[in-house]
């Protein structure tokens, strides 16, 4: 009986296992294959060695990723806490408003920011109309980071909100009862209890920020190349699949290390948070 049910279970899992082999394992192996071969298909470490020329881009990507994550956290935590204190109806409206822009295409959203920030964009036109000098916003690191925060911040809000909104009201009252004023309730109870949400939020913002492309091309005017753009260029423009694969591989390993590090902050038996 037991044996047949496990056979059944294996049969049920089969389509997914096939899917994983074709679309996850095989591409990864191909990335690794390209990374360690040259154009003729011979084994080489040349692609890996060539990466030292891209160290600056790696560092810039990680640096922008860190700044984006920190800004997102600073905005998202108070936002998530504030809405969780309101009525259920208000909460669902706010979460809805947060999600609505994400229903639009990522490229369109980024194009919209170009329109807003460019020298002849909405802001500068308005400034000129009331007699102020225009501000140079587009093609700056600030614009790139703004674009990343705008696109990825919801992924920080959602896991933190889901942890805070599930928090037992009695626990907040217990903290007040034991002598905490409003600020101490947040620093001593709400914040530490939100750690699982914060950790998954950090992972969900940091990983796409580091590997993103397109945002820096459009809002940074191509002056602030990030690692995602470099990879794209290797495949789309230079047709150097081997170098592109080696950069991808190293990026992947770096992100895995970061995620493993972040996961040390949450232990298994803590509830809440979205684990990816």
């Amino acid at each position: 009986m037991k044996k047949s049910s496990s056979l059944w279970a294996r049969l049920c899992a089969a389509p997914y296992i096939v899917w994983m082999i074709i679309f996850i394992a095989a591409p990864l192996l191909m990335v690794a294959y390209y990374a360690f071969t040259d154009a003729a298909g011979n084994f080489t470490l040349k692609n890996i060695v060539a990466l030292d020329g891209y160290a600056g881009i790696f560092i810039r990507s990680i640096w922008y990723g860190i700044i984006t994550t920190i800004i997102s956290l600073i905005i998202a935590f108070p936002f998530a806490y504030a809405i969780s204190q309101k009525s259920t109806k208000y909460q669902s409206t706010m979460i809805m408003l947060l999600m609505v822009p994400m229903w639009m295409n990522f490229l369109i959203r980024t194009y919209s920011w170009m329109n807003i920030l460019s020298d002849n964009g909405i802001i500068n036109t308005a400034l000129k109309a009331i007699g102020f000098a225009p501000i140079e916003m587009i093609n700056t690191p600030g614009a790139v980071i703004l674009g990343m925060v705008y696109n990825f911040m919801p992924y920080m809000v959602l896991p933190i909100y889901s942890v805070i909104s599930k928090m037992d009201r009695n626990i907040i009252e217990a903290a007040q009862d034991l002598g905490c004023n409003k600020l101490k309730v947040i620093t001593r109870v709400v914040l530490p209890m939100s750690v699982p949400g914060i950790v998954s939020g950090i992972t969900m913002v940091f990983v796409p920020s580091v590997s993103t492309f397109y945002i820096s091309q459009k809002l940074g005017g191509g002056k602030y190349d990030l690692i995602g753009d470099t990879i794209e260029r290797q495949f789309q423009t230079s047709y150097n699949y081997n170098l592109g694969a080696s950069i991808s591989l190293v990026l992947m390993i770096l992100l895995l290390v970061c995620m493993a590090f972040m996961n040390t902050f949450t232990s298994d038996d803590e509830e809440g948070g979205i684990v990816i």
């Binding site: 217990a174 209890m193 509830e271």
Partner: peptide
């Protein structure tokens, strides 16, 4: 007077212990 300034303490219905401590 808010709860944190009162000389009373409460044992809550479902304990409300801090799970992170």
């Amino acid at each position: 007077l808010p709860p944190h300034k009162r000389q009373v303490n409460t044992v809550f219905q479902r304990y409300a212990l801090f799970p992170h401590l």
